[in-house]
């Protein structure tokens, strides 16, 4: 039987930074580094293509709360196509920041 994944009691005492991912889809060449390096896997491929013919990353609204503004996507993108704006306040209860 698999061990139970316990809910942590005092999560509300721990706040994490929240970020808003901004994607410049025209610059993207679909290399997927941002998707790979995102620790919470909040990015997904878009359904349509940019003008170069590549799919680009999108952040769904449901996934927004999982972005912890680590900026890994920003650092690894070779084309400066993605960046993060950190929310000014340390936010709310982490729903479950660690998804891996």
């Amino acid at each position: 039987m698999p061990p139970v994944k316990r809910k942590l009691f005092n999560l509300d005492q721990y706040q994490v930074p929240r970020g808003k991912v901004q994607i410049i889809s025209e610059r993207c060449k679909g290399c997927s580094l941002c998707l790979e390096y995102c620790p919470n896997k909040v990015l997904a491929w878009s359904t349509d293509y940019n003008f170069k013919g590549y799919r680009y990353p999108v952040l769904e609204e449901t996934e927004e709360k999982y972005c912890i503004s680590c900026r890994f996507c920003e650092e690894v993108c070779p084309d400066f196509a993605i960046y993060v704006t950190t929310e000014p306040e340390l936010t709310a209860k982490p729903q479950s920041t660690q998804r891996k």
Binding site: R6, L8, L11, P39, I68, S69, L90, P94, T97, Q98
Partner: peptide, 9 residues
Amino acid sequence: PTCPVVVSN
């Protein structure tokens, strides 16, 4: 406070 990672203690 600004550490983005929360894990089990």
